[in-house]
Design a protein around this nucleic acid. Structure first.
Lengths: 224, 224
DNA sequence: GCATTGATTAACGCATACGCAAATAAATGC
DNA sequence: GCATTTATTTGCGTATGCGTTAATCAATGC
C-alpha cells in the first residue's frame, strides 16, 4: 500500500540533492558547475537541474551565469551581517508574537526540549549536537510566531549561513551565554511577556552577530 | 548599432509579462492558467513559461499545481497581516540603519522628493500619484538601509500586496497622517537619530496595517 | 611584437516530442 | 438507478535536439 512510491519529481530531488551538496561543502563556495555536469552527477537530464537551479537562485544559494554554469554563492562578512540582521528582526518579532499568542506548556514542549538538549550538549562539549539543538530552537521559535512569510524567509536565511555556522563552530567561544538567553526568551514567552521576549531575543541575536563578525574579522582567511 | 537588440531572454520577458498581468488583474487572484495557454498568450513555448513560473512561485506570487496549471495566489487577511508584519520589521530596521549611516542632504534627495510628491498628490486628491510616491518612499527607505537581503525581501512582500493596495486605495481614508509620519522619519534620518527613525516608522507601519486590516474586515467581499 | 579579427568549440536558451499520471466520461454490473 | 470500473483525454514531467551566443585560440596584419 505505502510501497514508498517515489512521489517526488526529479526537480525536487535535484533541489534536495544540490542543497545537500552545497551544505556539505562538496560544492564549495564560489565554485562553478556546468548544468550538464551536475545532470550527469545526479543521474538526470538538464531540465530538472535547470528548474532546481532557478529555485535555488531565488533562495539566494546559487547564481546562474550563461556559459559559466551554476556558481555557488560565497558569503562576504557584509552578507553575513545583512543576513543576521534580517534574522534578528524576524525572530524577535516571532518571539513577541509567540508570547502574545499564549501557548500552553504542552505546546511549548518542543522549545523546552531544544533548550535542555542544548544545555546537555554543552556539558558534554558536543558542539555538533549543540548546533543542531540551537537550530531546532530557532526554527521552533519562528514556528510559534505563526507567520508563514517569516517562517519561509527565516528558513532561507538560515540556509544561506549554514556553511558559515558549521565552519565557525569549532573556533567560536563556548556558547554559555546563549543558553541563558534561550531560557530567558522561553520564560518570557511562557509568561506572556511579549515585550520582554522580543527584547531578550533581540539582544541575544545581536550579541551572536557581533561575536560572529569579530570571528570573521579575525579569521579572514576563512572562505565561506 | 543600438538597434534595440533584444538582449533579454524569453524567460525574463515571461517573468515581466506575467507579473504585469497579475498586478493589472488580468490574471485574477485564485485563477488557474494552463502553461500551454500562457505560452500561446505570450507567444513563446512552454519552457520559458515554466521557468518564469518557478521564479514567481519562489517569490510567492503563484503556485504550480500538477494538472491544474498556474494558480495566482489569493491573499487572505491573515496573509496581509503576515506580510505587513514583515515589512514593518524590515523597514524599521532600514530606517534605523539609514539614520545611523548618516546621509547627506543630497543623498536623501530622492526620499525628500518622494515625500513632497506625496504631499502634492494629496492636495490634488490624486490617489494614484500618491500611491506611486508612497511606493517610491518605502523603496528608497529600504535602499538607504543598505541591506541587500532586506531589499530583496521587501520587494517581494510589496509585490505580494500590490493588488490589495490598489484595490483598497479607493476606499481607504485619506492618508493625511501618513505624510506626517514620513516627514518624521525623514527628519530622524537626517539628524542621525536612529532609535527615533525606527520608532516612528514602526508606528507608521503598524498604524497602516491596522487600518488596512479593519478595511478588509469591513469589505469582506473584496477578493484579493 | 602586439593587437585585432576570424574560426572553432563549448554551453546554454528554447522548442519540440514522448510517456505517464490524473481527471473525467462512459459503460457495465449489481 | 447507483456505484464501480474502465477507457479516453488532457496536461504535465522529462528528455533531447537544434540554433545561437560567447569564449578561447590562432593567424594575420600593422
Amino acid at each position: 500500500m505505502d510501497g514508498a512510491v517515489k512521489q517526488v519529481s526529479n526537480t525536487q530531488r535535484a533541489v534536495d540533492e544540490l542543497r545537500r551538496l552545497i551544505f556539505s561543502g562538496e560544492l564549495g563556495a564560489g565554485s562553478d558547475h556546468l548544468e550538464s555536469e551536475l545532470a550527469e552527477r545526479l543521474g538526470m537530464s538538464r531540465t530538472p537541474i535547470r528548474e532546481a537551479a532557478l529555485i535555488l537562485e531565488a533562495q539566494g544559494l546559487v547564481e546562474m551565469r550563461p556559459r559559466k554554469g551554476l556558481r555557488v554563492l560565497a558569503l562576504s562578512p557584509s552578507d553575513m551581517r545583512d543576513i543576521y540582521d534580517v534574522l534578528t528582526e524576524l525572530e524577535s518579532l516571532s518571539a513577541e508574537n509567540a508570547a502574545r499568542l499564549g501557548y500552553s506548556d504542552e505546546e511549548l514542549r518542543h522549545l523546552a526540549t531544544a533548550i535542555s538538549d542544548m544545555e546537555e550538549a554543552l556539558e558534554r562539549k558536543d558542539l555538533e549536537a549543540w548546533a543542531k539543538a540551537d537550530d531546532a530552537f530557532h526554527a521552533e521559535l519562528v514556528r510559534l510566531g505563526r507567520n508563514s512569510r517569516v517562517q519561509a524567509i527565516a528558513g532561507m536565511m538560515v540556509d544561506q549561513v549554514r556553511r558559515a555556522k558549521a565552519m565557525t563552530l569549532q573556533i567560536r567561544p563556548l556558547p554559555v551565554k546563549s543558553n541563558e538567553d534561550h531560557r530567558g526568551v522561553f520564560e518570557a514567552i511562557r509568561s506572556g511577556n511579549a515585550a520582554e521576549a522580543r527584547r531578550i531575543h533581540y539582544a541575544h541575536r545581536t550579541h551572536a552577530k557581533t561575536m560572529l563578525l569579530e570571528l570573521l574579522e579575525k579569521y579572514r582567511f576563512l572562505h565561506l
